[in-house]
């Protein structure tokens, strides 16, 4: 499956799950900031990606878990260097380069873009 094919299917999932127009789903669009995703939508997206691509996604595999609750990983409202290392290791499909400049925990959901999902699916499919 080409990256364009994956993008097209991811776009279908997001149009369905977030009730957005196709044109809004660009590669750089942030799921939260641009497409209005809320926490339950992340679970919905996980379920729909599984259906669309026919693979299973383990809890915490696509979106992070347990980072905000771990005092080693978050201090004074910011993700620590140790936390960032853990996030990068757990989520190789995510580009943290912008987030690293101001790693406020409240902003961590904004790192998830449409491209993040395409990267994740591409890796899962072994591309």
């Amino acid at each position: 499956m080409t990256r364009d094919d994956i993008f097209a299917k991811v776009r279908e999932v997001l149009v369905d799950s977030l009730a957005v127009d196709e044109e809004e789903v660009t590669s750089t669009a942030s799921l939260v900031k641009d497409l209005g995703a809320e926490s339950i939508d992340f679970l919905d997206i996980v379920f729909k990606l599984e259906q669309a691509f026919g693979f299973k996604i383990q809890q915490g595999e696509l979106f992070p878990e347990g980072v905000a609750q771990d005092p080693k990983f978050v201090k004074d409202g910011k993700v620590t260097a140790e936390g960032l290392t853990a996030l990068k290791a757990k989520l190789p499909h995510v580009d943290f380069s912008t987030f690293e400049q101001n790693p406020a925990i409240t902003k961590v959901a904004e790192v998830f873009t449409v491209d993040t999902l395409v990267n994740f699916v591409s890796k899962k499919l072994g591309n």
């Binding site: 339950i40 979106f63 905000a68 961590v108």
Partner: peptide, 17 residues
């Protein structure tokens, strides 16, 4: 419909529990 298991579903977007 989507149902949430409330006590298990606070981390999907990196939110505090």
């Amino acid at each position: 419909l989507m149902f949430s298991h409330l006590d298990h579903n606070m981390g999907a977007a990196g939110q505090a529990g």
